[in-house]
Amino acid sequence: MSLIEITEVRKSFGSNEVLKGINLDVQPGEVIAIIGKSGSGKSTLLRCINGLEMISGGSISVAGAQLLDDQLHLKTLRLKVGMIFQQFNLFPHLTVGGNVILSQTVVKKTARPVAEAMARKMLDRVGLAQKFDAYPDELSGGQQQRVAIARALAMEPIALLCDEITSALDPELVAEVLAVVRELANEGMTLLMVTHEMKFARDVCSRVVFMHQGRVHEIGPPGDVFPIRRLRS
């Protein structure tokens, strides 16, 4: 059975139809890159999967949790898929540790010492254990994004959605974030990422989804979707 099932998904903003019937099944452990021009609907598709946008038609389910428009279903779904954003969206009023602890204690009602141990473990995993007591505005963009990854991981999701997570970073900071993502992929985390990092997509992803004008234009292993010659030139 597929982990994520996206069936005939449609999404309109007013009269503008952004997604025109998307079908995509993701197996556990797959790493999927969604590429395409801006306006092709790739970010919208990602945001539909955890209900940040409500779909106008079709259905989405993640490990049996259906996307439905009520708090209970949304919460169940969101506990299964984490999301990482282009703008990091760390909570500026909390320390790095606080950022990773908060949702564990509030949403999962985890006891604070347990949540703190989990936070330290996850921050260590992204190489930022020493920044536990720092505030987000004291960190570089790359570090902030790694904290955001740790924050999502601390909720123990079974899949992660990455929405252009390196696009707001200075070029020299991109590598450290991608290294963390590569590590996650190697450990078997299911990943769906909207990205412009074509080389990364080719090296790490199991499949590439090429979207165009709200439809899946092409889908397949990176070798089929990217003609190797074109990438080298």
């Binding site: 969101r78 703008q87 908060l102 949702s103």
Partner: peptide
């Protein structure tokens, strides 16, 4: 910013929890 709502929502927080722990303190 909208990103604060989206980040806290995608971590599974309900609306009141978002207000109390993320939005109102800021």
């Amino acid at each position: 910013t909208k990103g604060q709502w989206e980040a806290s929502a995608s971590l599974g927080m309900g609306r009141l929890q978002q207000m109390r722990y993320v939005i109102l303190p800021q």
